[in-house]
Design a protein around this nucleic acid. Structure first.
Lengths: 127, 127
DNA sequence: CTCGATGCAAAGGCTTTGCAGAAAC
DNA sequence: GTTTCTGCAAAGCCTTTGCATCGAG
C-alpha cells in the first residue's frame, strides 16, 4: 500500500495554505521549493496523480496551457481575465434546476462540473 | 487583407453541417479529408486561428487532451462521460443572477463562459 | 529484505512556428 | 510583382513513462 509521501503531504499543505485557487504542476513544484522541499517535477506529477486517485484533489478544466488542480471539497467556479490570465474564484453559478433538466434530457448521471467565465479583470479594464 | 481561404471555408461548412458539437483540430482535418479537401494539419491550425480572430469560432475548455472548437453564436454547454469521453451538448445551465453577482463581487466584466459537466452517459451506466 | 517513493532522463502528444512554393490579386 | 495561403518539416511546451536508486517498514 501507499506509504506516506513527503511530497504529497507538502502539496496538500501548500494548497490548504491557500495562496492560490488553482495550481499548475509547475506552480506546485515552485511552491514546494520555496518551502525548502526538494521535489522533482515528475514526483510532483505522480503525487498529484495519486491525490487525484484518492479524490483529495480534482483537476479543473481551465484551458490556459497547463493542467490545473485544486483541493477537492472546496468546489467553486472561476473567472479568468482574457487579457492577463488572472484567475479568481467565485461561488458556483450553475442553476441546479437547469442542471437537472440537462441530466434528464441527455440521460447522463452528472456528478461534477467545471465552469470558467471569461472576462476582463478590474486592473486590465483601466488600460 | 485576408484572401478567401479554401480551408477556412471548408471548416465552417463542416462545422455548420453539424455532425458534432465540438471539434478538435484533428477531427477537422479528418472531416476535410473525407470531403475530399486536402488540408495539412498546420493549415487547419492556422485557419482555425484565423476564424477565432474573426470571432467566427470559439475555443472551448473541454480538458480532454486536445483543444476543441465550435461555431460562435451557437452557445451551449457540454456534458462529458468520464468513462468513454462521449460529449453531449446541453442548453446553458448558468444562472444569470449568480453570474451577475459573481461579476459584481470580483469586479470582472464577464463576456462568455464555458461549462463542462462530468458524469456517466447512459451507455456506460449499463456496464 | 521488500516494496513503494523519488530523481533523472527520455519519450510522447499536441501545438506552434519557419520557410519555400503555390495561388490570388 | 506583391501579398497571402499552404504544405512540409522542425521546434516547443507540457505531460507521461522507464529505470535505477533511496528509504521506510
Amino acid at each position: 500500500m501507499a506509504r506516506p509521501s513527503r511530497i504529497a503531504l507538502q502539496i496538500v499543505d501548500t494548497m490548504t495554505a491557500g495562496a492560490r485557487h488553482a495550481w499548475t504542476l509547475e506552480q506546485l513544484a515552485t511552491d514546494l521549493h520555496q518551502r525548502g522541499v526538494a521535489a522533482d517535477f515528475s514526483s510532483v506529477y505522480r503525487a498529484v496523480e495519486r491525490l487525484l486517485g484518492e479524490r483529495r484533489l480534482v483537476r479543473i478544466a481551465i484551458d490556459d496551457g497547463a493542467a490545473r488542480f485544486e483541493l477537492a471539497g472546496a468546489h467553486h467556479d472561476h473567472v479568468r481575465c482574457v487579457r492577463c490570465a488572472a484567475l479568481a474564484a467565485i461561488p458556483c453559478v450553475v442553476d441546479p434546476a437547469a442542471l437537472a433538466a440537462a441530466a434528464a434530457s441527455t440521460g447522463y448521471t452528472v456528478t461534477t462540473h467545471c465552469v470558467v467565465l471569461d472576462g476582463v479583470c478590474p486592473a486590465c479594464r483601466q488600460h
